[in-house]
Structures are given as structure tokens and as C-alpha cells.
Nucleic acid binder design. Structure first.
Length: 483
DNA sequence: TTTTGAGTTGTTCGA
DNA sequence: GTCGAACAACTCAAA
């Protein structure tokens, strides 16, 4: 029996259902939970500012709960391979366990580190802990990847059940004495510019916060209304678990099984193991697996259109539009509401993400990567697989993408999904007194209505900085020319 | 082997 | 006001 094992924690910042941690505990007497800060290894997609804020708080939460169980968290900085060898040497560890990451930079890096450690006589165990299934497990009969979601999802239903989560330890062995560690603060993750000051009111990073959110989502039965409510940004109809899932504060498996349990389903093999009333939500959860499936099989798509024809698409440079879009000053209320919610809370409702992306790429003809990079920096749930898939879907160049002619109309979207204007009123307070009929198109409102609402266009709130109809027509021309 | 039908998230136009 | 058609091309699995 190996006496000391290192658990290399990355984006599995939890104690429950952590296969690497359980493995280390099963095979050794002493266990060292280790976090290595090496953002430069993640280039060119180093964590953005909002992600770093989340990471800071998540690490603190993890450290506290590890200590409560009798252990602690060792934090180091430097090349991951080097630090792992150092800590192994200092502690005499003969085993390193981790849960797999799927990012393009992580695969080769981890494989290299695994070989180096093995060469130094250290055992390595790699586990599956982030997705419902490994990206290579849910493939077509001929072994190739899926390009359409529905068949991918159908296969989940037919070939379930999903793995059951493993309970985590109630107690942990103490850390070996004398192991040096940085503090979370030393990592300097939180920007000195306090633009994230409201994040703490919205989010509780860490395993306990993740569990509380899941329990709330299930407890108030929102999961059963998800099919209807998830599209309404002014309502509390979604789970809000995205960032928790990204950092692995809870696993997709835990969510899957908790939902099934709440629905009283067996979760057994065959489609009927998944009750109808939780299918809409579990289907969305499976989209996360699908995004990782795509990026695993086509890693180039983080920056290159999945549909290669789009490489020659004539995007426009439009820095003024990009700036207005980022600041939530486009003059299109629903888009501005979303962009301000993003800036303020580090998160945006998915319905509005699609609209904001559609306006930037299809009305504004700006390359989707401009939007993807902004989201990357400002979203607390920024995830390369999800972000890439979402932006390429909207731009029309991705897997199972929106057809080029599907261009969202912000006013129509507002009527359908924010009919009373609640969401706009919350995030664009200068329009709060506008009547619902006109709130999504203030530039078309009669003078008297504007006056009554106390809105002076271009002073209190801008007119649209782009002509939606012209942009749409031009986009359709260019997309058609591509075919 | 070939055919067929369906496929996350939409809008506009004309009858 | 409501309704269907048009706006492509391609993937996938079942027949």
C-alpha cells in the first residue's frame, strides 16, 4: 500500500462525488489535496476576470471544508508538472490522482505530466468526474462523433443509466507536517478594480453554495416547470448551476441523480427511466456534455468555425458597435439589459445570451470571436466548450447551428419572453416607467409616451446604434453568397 | 442499400 | 388577426 497520495484538484473543487479523492483515500494513508495555480498553461484561453473571482472564493470554500474534515489545502504556483514532482518528493508520495479535464490545453499537458511522473516511479490514476459521460463514450455505432444534438441525447436515454455519484468522506487524514503552501490571497485572483462588487450578492461559490442552489431549484419545483419557464429571463426559472458545474463544485452526475430522485424516477435503462416532467432540464444538462463532445473531437473549433466555409465570411470591423454592446448602450433594451446583467452579476440568462449574440453577429456582422472573448472575460461560468458551441451556433457556423436566415428580432423576442418588460425594467432602469407596449422599442414610441415616462432619447437612453433591418438584410446577402 | 423524415432556441411576408 | 410558406443544407437513424 502506498502511504501518501496527492489529489491534484483543478476543476473538481468538491469533496462529494470526487473519484480522484476517493481513490487516493482508498489506496493510501495520507492524502494531500493540492491546487496548482498555473494560468499560463491554459493559454490562449486563460481564465477571465469573472472566472478568477469565482475561483478565489471557491478555493477558500474548499479550504475551509477540507480543514473541517481534518485536512487542508496545499496551494502552490508554478509549472504543474514541476510542482507535482516537488510535492511528491517533499512528501514521499507514490500516487497522484486527478479527475480528467477536456480542454485542448489540458489533454496533452496532463498526458505529458502523467508520463513524467510514471517515469519517476510515481503511480498516476486519472478519473472521470466532470461530465455525465466521457466525450468518446457516447458516439455513433460506427464510433464517430455526433453533429446533431437530438440523436446524441436519444442515445443517453437509451443507453442509461448514468453513473451513480460516490459519497465523499466525512473525515480526512491530516496533512503531513511541513508542507509549504501559499494562501488563496497570494494567488491575486481578485481584480483590484471592484467591478465585481455585486457578485457576492448573487453567488456563493463552493460546494455548499452549489448544493444550496440545487436544493432550492428542486425544492421550489422549478425543475418541473423548466420546459416553460426557462425562456423567461425575468423569472427565476433556471437552475443557476452553470458556474458551479464549471468549477466542479458539484458534478453533473449529482445533478442528474438528484433531479431523478426529486421526480421519483428509477433512472433505469431505457427511455422510460427518465420521467417526462424532468426531461427538459436533463436534456439541457446533456447539452453541456454535447459541447465537450464537440470540442474534444474538433479542438480547432475554439477559434475556427466548425463549418469551414465560414472561414471566408466577410465579417465587419465595428469597434464602436462592440463597445456599445459591451457597455449595454446599444439602444436595444433587451440586449442592453442582458449585457448589464452580465457586467453586474457575471451571468446572463441564456435566452438573452442568444439574442445578444445574434444582434452582434447577424445584425452587426461582427465576428463571433469578439463576442466570445467578451463573454469569456465577464462570465463567472465561462466554459470553453459551452461558450464556443453557443457562439458558433448563433453565428450559424457551428454544429447543429441555427440556419443563417434565423436572425432574432429583439422586439419579437421581447414580446414573447419579456412581455411585461420586467427584465428590461430591472437592468435598464432609465426605461422603468415605459409602458410594456413600448418598452422593447422606445425609439418607436410616440413623443407623449416618452415624455410621460420621463425618457429623452439620446440623453437618458440611446437610439439603436445599428439599423437592425439593414443589418439583417446585409447578413442574409452575405450568408447566401457563402453557400 | 436507399429512402425518408425530423431536427433546441426564428422572422417575415402575403393570402 | 391568423396561417402557411419561404428562407438551405446537412446529419442521423429508422424503415
Amino acid at each position: 500500500m502506498t502511504t501518501t497520495a496527492i489529489v491534484w484538484l483543478r476543476r473538481d473543487l468538491r469533496i462529494d462525488d470526487n473519484p480522484a479523492l476517493n481513490r487516493a483515500l482508498a489506496e493510501s494513508e495520507r492524502v494531500i489535496p493540492l491546487y496548482i495555480h498555473a494560468p499560463e498553461e491554459e493559454a490562449p484561453w486563460q481564465p477571465g476576470a469573472a472566472s478568477c473571482w469565482w475561483l478565489h472564493h471557491s478555493l477558500r470554500a474548499l479550504e475551509i471544508s477540507l480543514r473541517r474534515r481534518g485536512s487542508g489545502l496545499v496551494i502552490r504556483r508554478g509549472g504543474s508538472g514541476t510542482v507535482l514532482r516537488e510535492v511528491a518528493r517533499e512528501s514521499g508520495a507514490g500516487l497522484v490522482c486527478w479527475n480528467r479535464l477536456y480542454d485542448l490545453w489540458a489533454g496533452p499537458r496532463d498526458e505529458g505530466i502523467g508520463k513524467t511522473l510514471a517515469g519517476a516511479g510515481i503511480h498516476v490514476k486519472v478519473h472521470h468526474g466532470s461530465l455525465l459521460r466521457e466525450p468518446w463514450d457516447n458516439v455513433k455505432d460506427d464510433g464517430s462523433m455526433y453533429r446533431v444534438f437530438t440523436p446524441f441525447w436519444r442515445r443517453y436515454l437509451l443507453t442509461g443509466p448514468e453513473e451513480v455519484p460516490e459519497p465523499g468522506p466525512a473525515e480526512l487524514p491530516p496533512l503531513p507536517r511541513g508542507l509549504g503552501s501559499l494562501s488563496v490571497e497570494d494567488l491575486d485572483l481578485v481584480s483590484r478594480i471592484p467591478w465585481h462588487r455585486a457578485f457576492g450578492d448573487c453567488w456563493q461559490p463552493g460546494e455548499a453554495g452549489a448544493m444550496a442552489r440545487l436544493e432550492d431549484f428542486l425544492g421550489r419545483s422549478a425543475v418541473f416547470e423548466y420546459g416553460r419557464e426557462r425562456d423567461l429571463p425575468g423569472q427565476d426559472g433556471v437552475s443557476g448551476l452553470s458556474a458551479h458545474l464549471h468549477f466542479g463544485e458539484l458534478s453533473a452526475r449529482q445533478v442528474w441523480h438528484a433531479v431523478l430522485q426529486a421526480a421519483g424516477g428509477s433512472g433505469g435503462a431505457g427511455e422510460h427511466g427518465v420521467p417526462e416532467r424532468v426531461r427538459p432540464f436533463l436534456r439541457q444538462l446533456t447539452w453541456r456534455d454535447f459541447a465537450h463532445h464537440i470540442l474534444h473531437h474538433e479542438p480547432r473549433t475554439a477559434e475556427d468555425p466548425f463549418d469551414r466555409r465560414y472561414r471566408s465570411f466577410p465579417w465587419d470591423e465595428n469597434p464602436e458597435l462592440v463597445l456599445a454592446w459591451q457597455k449595454g448602450r446599444t439602444g436595444i433594451p433587451l440586449v442592453d439589459a442582458g449585457m448589464r446583467q452580465l457586467w453586474h452579476t457575471g451571468w446572463m440568462h441564456n435566452r438573452v445570451r442568444m439574442l445578444a449574440a445574434s444582434v452582434l453577429t447577424k445584425n452587426g456582422l461582427v465576428h463571433w470571436l469578439n463576442g466570445a472573448r467578451w463573454f469569456w472575460d465577464t462570465l463567472v461560468d465561462a466554459d470553453l466548450a459551452n461558450n464556443t458551441m453557443g457562439w458558433q451556433w448563433t453565428a450559424g457556423c457551428g454544429v447543429d447551428a441555427a440556419p443563417y436566415f434565423r436572425v432574432f428580432n429583439p422586439a419579437r423576442q421581447g414580446e414573447r419572453f419579456d412581455p411585461r418588460g420586467d427584465y428590461v425594467r430591472t437592468w435598464v432602469p432609465e426605461l422603468a416607467a415605459m409602458p410594456s407596449r413600448h418598452i422593447h422599442e422606445p425609439w418607436r414610441a410616440p413623443e407623449a409616451v416618452l415624455r410621460q415616462a420621463g425618457v429623452v432619447l439620446d440623453e437618458d437612453y440611446p437610439r439603436p446604434v445599428l439599423n437592425l433591418a439593414d443589418g439583417r438584410a446585409e447578413a442574409l446577402r452575405r450568408f447566401r453568397a457563402l453557400g
